[in-house]
Design a protein around this nucleic acid. Structure first.
Lengths: 111, 111
DNA sequence: TTTTCTATTTATAATGT
DNA sequence: TACATTATAAATAGAAA
């Protein structure tokens, strides 16, 4: 993208790929942060890599958990708006169950 | 950032904020995609907004589910390596519980 | 309102140390 | 190997349509 318009495909060279990863990951997380602040919205990113056992995330691990569970409460089917009014009872059970999990994790941390 | 070095804080004006959101969200998801392709890694992003009921995500909803469940199986406490060997039973219960939730959702979809 | 334009800032690939 | 520099590509804020 500079000195040469890079082709968007897997970087074969190990050290080049690592350097690119580190730089782009940093800038990506910065962008997530900026979007969230500028627009006052919830956003998160999770980036796995062979260089860390743990993924790099934005914002904190804890906040990602919150946003992710919000995401998981809205099953894929709702997107296409089939079953929207059906199955309400079951979805409520899922939400409740998720809340319990979150509480469980919280308790576990505090222990 | 151009014509003026914008201050990194909540954009008060509604229409400006919406325009900025749409542009930056598009570019953010593009960046996630590029990082993933260039470096051959798993990454995902979830962006909520008041403009859509559903969050904007990258990659597909289904892939985000996969990455997110990978994330959730690695509790926060493991990061700081306190309680790593403690509390194993409880964590297993959480994982199991989570698996049940996923199965529940799957069943719900298939119903 | 939303889209297009563009001056300027930001990101970044290659190179240097 | 990792960090600093720099020339160029990409993103973008504000204005104009």
């Amino acid at each position: 993208m500079t000195r040469k318009k890079v082709k968007l495909c897997y970087i074969a060279n190990d050290s080049t790929r690592k350097v690119t990863f580190k730089k782009r990951k940093k800038d990506l997380l910065k962008k997530v942060s900026e979007l969230s602040i500028l627009c006052g919205i919830d956003a998160c990113a999770i980036v796995y890599s062979p260089y860390n056992n743990q993924p790099d995330v934005w914002p904190s691990h804890h906040e990602v958990q919150r946003i992710v569970s919000q995401f998981q409460r809205m099953p894929e089917m709702e997107q296409s708006s089939w079953m929207v009014d059906q199955d309400r009872f079951l979805r409520q059970r899922i939400v409740k169950s998720n809340d319990q999990l979150i509480k469980q994790r919280k308790d576990s941390r505090e222990k």
